[in-house]
Write a protein that binds this DNA or RNA. Sequence first.
DNA 1: TTATAGTTCTTGTATAGACAAGTGTCAACA
DNA 2: TGTTGACACTTGTCTATACAAGAACTATAA
Lengths: 243, 243
Amino acid sequence: MRAKYLQIAADLTNKIRHEQYVAGDFLPSEPALSELYNVSRETIRKSLNELLDAGLIQKIKGKGSVVINAARIAFPISNIESFDELNKQKQMHATTKILELKDTQVPLTIIKHLSLTETAATYVSRLRLINDEPIVVDEDYILKKYVPKISAKQAQSSLYQYFEDDLGLEIDYATKTITVEPASQNVMKQLQLTDTNLVVVVRSLTYLKDTSFFQYTISQHRPDKFKFVDFAHRKAQNGGLIL
Amino acid sequence: MRAKYLQIAADLTNKIRHEQYVAGDFLPSEPALSELYNVSRETIRKSLNELLDAGLIQKIKGKGSVVINAARIAFPISNIESFDELNKQKQMHATTKILELKDTQVPLTIIKHLSLTETAATYVSRLRLINDEPIVVDEDYILKKYVPKISAKQAQSSLYQYFEDDLGLEIDYATKTITVEPASQNVMKQLQLTDTNLVVVVRSLTYLKDTSFFQYTISQHRPDKFKFVDFAHRKAQNGGLIL
DNA sequence: TTATAGTTCTTGTATAGACAAGTGTCAACA
DNA sequence: TGTTGACACTTGTCTATACAAGAACTATAA
């Protein structure tokens, strides 16, 4: 049984997504919601905090909780088709091509940086295509300590689903950096880059619920197919653009 | 007087930053902290949630709150100097050159997208340099409704400081998209780009505490000087990479 | 007409208490 | 020896209550 406040948050989220509450509307007041769902006000407040974090509402002291236009978040960008937009097209056809799969060690810079003691890892390199267009080259280092063996079949489908559903690993948080760098000849060939040699590089360190390091990923994106969307409250000092 | 839970959060944050608690350590248990600070356990829990959101700790049910290595977050990247790293160098010398400052309208795509009724805005275009190297071209559209007049002097220093400290505007949240796009001839010239015509474009829509739209910014970065760092919990569906 | 003050909404903060559920220890038992 | 079960810790959820503080409206007074 999920917690009450999460159920209520899910319910309110649905009502916003299905436009029972639309942008600019005020949600019922906390005491009103409290009576509606038959829970205490603190429980309602926990639910509303979930919506706040998700960027669905904005709370204004003395007034109430306003629904924010979700459509505002991903606003249109001049003549650029994002991966997500491609994804939503019906004729989309996503495929994965395994470039390499081997046993190795986590790269030295990461070992040093995290002071790792267990360094044995599985390396997977994969090319992702949409409608036969190459979009991303993903390189993963997955610690053998947590995932002893990865088959080609598993690498072909979703690794995360395998980790979470089959192995019961609880992935909890990740740190990412996004930069733009020159690509290697090989990656340029894989991504069929001709006009430029630059790719968008997303490096991720992924951790489990018990804070142990688990996976290092390097994603190299075609620059013309890359789009990153971020929603951030002012106070949050993380997730920040370094400028 | 700031809220207790924020003071306690600030205190714990300091203790982590000053390494009184280091990575891997468990914080005192919630009842222990509750006694230490002479507040209720719920108040302590609010404080710990702040640290959790900031990515400073990880809570493990049945065990406790573990300190996460903050240094892990911004990990080193091959031969790339970020703006932030440059910033921290002592010999850094940041300057701003105003390219244009005029009254105009918010771009049509934004007006349509947000269904704006008030569209009068001040337009500011600025070139940012570090050690005389051009780094970013910033273009801002700021609604006249909230900021009637912007002088060249104000545009020269921090606009945000002017908005928040002098005008008392409360900036609350923003949505950003990051893409890579070809630059105009003019921007290429300003950024002194020769090897490539690509720039990293960060578009931001900024909102006030009362959810009213306030500012639209287009930042065009030299690709070799751009770096974005992100920390995200798994459950959070926002701040996500679209892929 | 224009302020002012009060009233009644709203959300924000803080407390004390209760029980559920995950984790680890250790003693008793087979 | 090895397993089980009780126990004592931890964090997670939920309640009921109280007061503070911001916002909006209204009636009153100047």
